[in-house]
Design a protein around this nucleic acid. Structure first.
Length: 489
RNA sequence: GUCCCCAUCGUCUAGCGGCCUAGGACACCACCCUUUCACGGUGGAUACACCGGUUCAAAUCCGGUUGGGGACGCCA
């Protein structure tokens, strides 16, 4: 248990191998929330020891996503320059290699680690055998007891070796987990694991411990899949005589099939949700509630409310399935709470992206948002809502053609057009439209669907859709006349 | 296969031995509002996986079974 005087320091440690995925975002959020709630620090550390997969491009993406979510870090690479900021850097593991090597040497000298010259084939064979015999797939290295000097000589002779940690046998490790309580691991749950690859590059479990210790991390909130890693890490802490941080192993975020949400399966990155028109505050709100609950069961929470309410004692240990319908609802709720101006500002880029041509008038923007916002769940929903209004997108669908083919339709539309031409204002009001519609009814001597549907086609090109009383006032009279003419030709 | 974790409505969850004939939210259904949608309102259906204990009392504690998930890498 860290001393009370010790500062609360949490980190998020992604590997830059793609976009930030939703499970990672949730982990980052919890760490961020706890740091903020307790006046501590939130550190971004980059776990880029997998040279083959780590790229600066991915790193930038991950940082962009984090920033989009509003999870600002106090220490770590600067979002633009990537230059490390903070007293305990560098914060990219690829820049800390010398540190890991010196710790590895210390373990080697103390006999807590050893060089292993096993080939992949030898390892594979042992694994196969272990599986057949129904044992743990542990490796039993013949080099375990080699004196350091002997190994060093062999290396000097040109052989390459990995450095393995010597795991203890017959012991029990007890982890006091923040979300799971006491977790007991038999020490032989894991085999001698690699600390340094044959090229000298350290691996995750090792870097993680060294960095968490050196960066004075007080709490580690990470996904449940790391539970076995925590055992390995506890062993390293123990052999270095370092104090353990507090661990909390979060339940996993599962997909609709209750399988681990995986990067490979796609459709799970934070970035995609941004593109689909979700609000960062809504995404934070939703993912926070996957495996954690508000003490009063409040479900709609802003960023600050999340910080205020956050605590470590309300995690639910079971895996949680991601439910897009609920995310949509939360998103809609956050969206509708905004002012019409703000909503326009948010949907505008999506409308432009879709190539919609809409009036520039701010008053019109506001008016349109006022009528559409109860139909908006995500920002992209706006595209389909506004599409019928955009002149270049006016097209008569086949079903609309059928409506126009009715005997009475031509007369209805001609009447409608004539009445529009007799008007003077740029835009009709909802009431004005209803009056006009009534006059068409009288003059053309039709009613029911024979009245409504042709007019609708003359307005939006299809016989079904949003209420005309709402739509018509958003389309200029001039444009309505043109649309009617198109139907007549 | 081995080890670890988990188990309340379809989904997210509340519940931490009596307030539970199990509460909320999303989704679903019905009705109301509204001359179509949406929003909003009201109501409804739906869950403690199973079996044993412990206890005066168990969704809550213990054991087992079953089911689900995760980990078994020179990935993180």
């Amino acid at each position: 248990m860290p001393a009370a005087s010790e500062k609360v320091r949490l980190r998020f440690a992604p590997s830059p191998t793609g976009y930030l995925h939703i499970g990672g975002a949730r982990t980052a959020l919890y760490n961020y929330l706890y740091a903020r709630k307790n006046g501590g620090s939130f550190i971004l550390r980059i776990e880029d020891t997998d040279e083959a997969r780590s790229t600066d491009e991915s790193l930038r993406r991950v940082m962009e996503d984090l920033q989009w979510l509003g999870l600002e870090w106090d220490e770590g690479p600067h979002p633009e320059t990537l230059v490390d900021q903070g007293p305990l850097g560098p914060y990219r593991q690829s820049r800390r290699l010398a540190i890991y090597r010196s710790v590895a040497e210390e373990l080697l000298r103390a006999g807590k680690a050893y060089y292993c010259f096993m080939t992949d084939a030898e390892i594979e064979a042992q694994k196969q055998q272990a599986q057949q015999e129904g044992r743990h797939q542990h490796l039993n290295s013949p080099y375990q007891e080699w004196p350091l000097e002997r190994s060093l000589e062999r290396i000097k002779a040109g052989d390459s070796a990995v450095v393995r940690f010597r795991t203890s046998v017959g012991k029990e490790y007890v982890l006091h987990d923040l979300v799971r309580g006491e977790v007991r691991f038999p020490s032989d749950m894991v085999g001698d694991f690699v600390l340094l690859r044959s090229g000298g590059m350290p691996v995750y479990n090792f870097c993680c411990v060294v960095d968490d210790h050196l960066m004075k991390i007080s709490h580690v909130l990470r996904a449940e899949e790391h539970l076995p890693n925590s055992l390995r890490q506890m062993m390293i802490y123990e052999s270095m005589g370092w104090e353990l941080p507090r661990f909390g192993h979060l339940s996993l975020v599962l997909d609709e099939d209750r399988k681990k949400l995986s990067k490979r399966r796609g459709a799970t990155s934070c970035h995609e949700f941004k593109l689909e028109g979700f609000l960062p505050e809504a995404l934070n709100n939703y993912i926070c509630l996957l495996g954690w609950s508000h003490p009063e069961e409040k479900e709609i929470l802003t960023g600050t409310e999340l910080i205020d309410a956050f605590s470590l004692d309300r995690f639910h240990p079971a895996g949680a399935a991601f439910d897009i319908a609920k995310l949509r609802w939360i998103n809609a709720t956050h969206l509708r709470a905004k002012s019409d101006d703000e909503i326009w500002r948010l949907i505008d880029p999506f409308l432009k992206e879709a190539g919609l041509k809409l009036p520039e008038d701010p008053a019109w923007h506001k008016r349109s948002v006022a009528v559409f916002k109860t139909n908006l769940e995500t920002l992209v929903d706006a595209v389909e809502l506004y599409r019928p209004i955009s002149d270049p997108h006016f097209a008569i669908v086949p079903e609309g053609q059928e409506t126009l083919a009715w005997e009475s339709s031509r007369k209805v539309i001609e009447t409608w057009k004539g009445l529009l031409q007799a008007e003077t204002s740029d835009h009709l009001t909802g009431e004005g439209f209803l009056k006009l519609q009534d006059r068409v009814k009288e003059m053309a001597q039709v009613k029911g669907k024979f009245l409504f549907m042709p007019i609708r086609v003359a307005v939006i090109g299809k016989p079904h859709g949003t209420e005309l009383k709402i739509l018509v006032p958003l389309i200029s009279r001039h444009s309505l006349i043109q649309r009617a003419e198109k139907c007549l030709s």
